[in-house]
Write a protein that binds this DNA or RNA. Structure first.
Lengths: 177, 177
DNA sequence: CCTATCATGTAATCCGTTACATGATTAT
DNA sequence: ATAATCATGTAACGGATTACATGATAGG
C-alpha cells in the first residue's frame, strides 16, 4: 500500500500500454513504437517518454534497470501493479467525451472566413486520411482489433472533416435556400 | 516595438476574442460568456480567465482598470495591439490539423471492448448533440455567422461519432462479411 | 441572523514543451 | 578522420489544473 504518487494521465497509460504490448523497452524504443502506432492520433513529446516512465517507476507501475556497460541506458518493464492499473483504465468507460479543441473551428467562431480557412484544412485532412490509408494497407493481419478500430475511427473522422469543410465553404457565399 | 512577452496561445485568443466581441469585461463575466459560447467546444478553467488577462495586460494586448470602491474588481479592455493580434491570428490558416486525442479511442487502441465502451460514448455524444440543438434553436437571428458555423461543426462531429460507435459495436461481434 | 451560494481572486503543484547537451554510429 | 545523424538523457520554463481563501448577496 505505497504512496499513490501523482495521478495517472493519458500519457501514463500510453507508456503502460506500450510496455505491456511490446515488452520491456528503453525510452527510445518507446518513442519509435509510439511514432508508428498511437502517435497517429495522440502524439507525445520525446522528452515525455523519458520523464513519464521515471514518474511511473517512482509510483511502482514500472521498474527500471540500467545497463552496466556501454551506454548505461534505462530499460523499463511494466509491473503487476502497472498491468492492473492499465486493465482498470481500459475497462472503465471514458469519462466525458473529448472536446473538439480545433483551432480552425475557434477561428471560425471568432469570425474567420471559411472560404480562406477551408482549403488548407481540406488539404491537411486529405493528407492525414491518405496516411491512414497507407498505414492500413500495410497492417499485418494479426494486428490487434483495437488498433485497426482506432485507425478506422481516425479515417472516419478525417472523412467527416473533409466533407464538412467542403460544405462550409460553399454554404458561406451563396446562402441560396 | 515593446517586449513580445510570453507567446499567445489559443487561450489568449479566446480572451481577446471575447473582449472584442462582448466589450470590456471582468474575469467573472468572461467566465459567463465563455461558458455559453466558446465553452461548448473549448472549455477553460475559471482560474485561466483570471490569469490569462493578466498575462495579456503585461504584454500590452489588454488594459486593466480596477474599481475604486466596493469589490475593487478588475475590468479588462482589449487594446489596438490586441485587436491587431486577434485579426492576424484569425486570418492565418490554422497550422496542423487538430488531433483526435480521444481517450475512448485510446482505450480501444489498447484493447478495450467496443461493446462495453460504445454505449456510454453514444449516450454522451447524444447528449452533447441534443445540447447543441437546444442552443441552435435559441440562437438569435443576428448571431455572427461563425458562431453558427462552429455550432454546426460540432453537431456534425457529434453525429459522426454516434454513427461510428454504433457501427463499431456491431462490427466487433458478428464479423459477417 | 445564519447559511449557502455566488463572485472574485491568489497560490501551489504538476505536466507538457522547449532547449540544451553529449555519447554512439554510420557514411564519406 | 570528420561530419552528420541517431540515440539518450537532463534542465528550465510556462501554462493549465487544482486547491485555497475570502468578500458579497440572497434565502431561510
Amino acid at each position: 500500500m505505497q504512496d499513490d504518487g501523482p495521478r495517472l494521465t493519458p500519457t501514463s497509460y500510453i507508456v503502460l500500454g506500450l510496455l505491456a504490448w511490446f515488452g520491456d523497452s528503453t525510452p527510445y524504443r518507446l518513442k519509435q513504437v509510439a511514432a508508428t502506432s498511437v502517435g497517429n492520433f495522440w502524439t507525445l513529446q520525446h522528452a515525455q517518454l523519458y520523464t513519464e516512465p521515471e514518474r511511473l517507476a517512482a509510483a511502482g507501475y514500472v521498474t527500471v534497470q540500467r545497463e552496466r556497460g556501454g551506454r548505461r541506458r534505462k530499460l523499463y518493464a511494466i509491473t503487476n501493479l502497472g498491468r492492473e492499473a492499465l486493465g482498470h483504465w481500459r475497462a472503465e468507460p471514458a469519462g466525458e467525451v473529448a472536446e473538439l479543441r480545433d483551432q480552425a473551428i475557434l477561428k471560425l467562431f471568432f469570425g474567420a472566413d471559411p472560404a480562406a480557412l477551408g482549403p488548407p484544412q481540406i488539404e491537411a485532412h486529405d493528407a492525414k486520411l491518405a496516411e491512414y490509408e497507407r498505414i492500413r494497407a500495410s497492417l499485418p493481419d494479426d494486428v490487434p482489433a483495437g488498433v485497426r478500430l482506432a485507425l478506422e475511427a481516425g479515417m472516419d473522422h478525417e472523412r467527416q472533416q473533409i466533407a464538412w469543410w467542403k460544405q462550409a465553404m460553399v454554404a458561406g457565399d451563396g446562402d441560396s435556400g
